[in-house]
Amino acid sequence: MRNPRIPQSHFTAPLNEILGTEANVRVLRELCRADSPMARTTIAERAGLSLPGTSAAVAKLQRSGIVEAVGAGTRQSFGFRHGHPLAPALRTLFLAETLRTDALHGELRSLLGSLSSTPRAAWIVESEAPDEPGAPLRLSVLGAARDLPELASAIQGAIGELGSRYDTTIEVRATTEADLATASPAEHAVMQGATPVFGPHPLTFIDGSADAHQTAGPKRATHADRDHQAALSAAWIADQLNRDPSLPKRARNWLVHRLHVASPREAAELDDWLHVLESSSIPRIQHLLLSPGERAVRLRQSNPFIPVLTDRERDLMRKAATG
């Protein structure tokens, strides 16, 4: 891009520098999501960038004041500067991006589950080539060869309105287990990054563990199993509140944004949680998370703390929940 003919002040238009390149946005997104500063190599890995590209973006963002350095030398790391005047707006922007994706995946899951004949699995894969605005999302659907044409046609017809609401085109691709078994190494690499929206991950069908994954998956779990798992997760979060008192605020922010896209049924549960977080102390929130009462059991199924956990926190919670 050519240099602008008329320069603008960094004070009046700081986003020109902050969001000026895709690398800047990728780095800032990962730093905004992280719960602590990260080394350049970690940022590069999470953002999908080269180390030189990451270093250049970090330097620009640090110069703009939205990123700050911690430490020095080989141990230097970088974090999102929460005290920057535009930090709340940028956090909201990245959160809205995440919520839009989560909401679409949730609606796809509900739609696929409501069909008279459901697929064995469905997943969204990233484009093999650089994505362009307007490029379709690719929804791969797995089923028996004899049923796939009718199933794919039914799904494609049902998701048209969904694509319009999310301002995207969803392209359905029918897949059989035979297709997965004969996939090339390059196709395997693409599937590695697939996001399951219904059923297990596609690679479980390739390594022969699909049946085990389905048996352990949420479709076979009983209400008691789900309640028990939710209680274990809630117990970990209740303990985490002692170490991280910012969790209620993060959960409240997530609730406020989620309510804009929630169904009426979900909104009722989220409103209940919002009232709890706005009117209760941390000890009272912990009591609700641990309570065996009917209301607590119900609310744990829509626990707003889980979506705001970092990847590391989710891993710790899962390990605690599985012993």
Rank of each mutant, 00 (worst) to 15 (best):
F305V: 02
A238W: 04
F80K: 02
R120A: 13
F11T: 15
A321Q: 01
P248Q: 08
I18V: 08
V141D: 03
P283D: 00
L142K: 01
A181E: 13
R91V: 11
G20Q: 04
H201K: 06
I124S: 05
R26Q: 12
R81W: 11
L299S: 03
P264Q: 00
R100S: 10
A321L: 05
I282D: 06
N242Q: 12
L203C: 00
I66Q: 00
I43A: 02
F198A: 05
I282S: 03
S77L: 09
T41K: 15
H287A: 15
R40N: 14
N24C: 13
L104P: 00
D147F: 05
R250G: 08
I237D: 00
S291W: 04
L51Y: 06
D239G: 11
S50N: 06
K249D: 13
S291P: 08
A135C: 10
Q214H: 12
E187V: 08
A238F: 05
L19R: 05
A152V: 13
L19C: 10
R120C: 08
S279T: 14
A216I: 10
R165T: 03
A96T: 09
A103K: 00
E30M: 15
P264F: 00
R26D: 04
L99A: 06
P196N: 04
R295W: 05
H257Y: 13
E97A: 08
R5L: 15
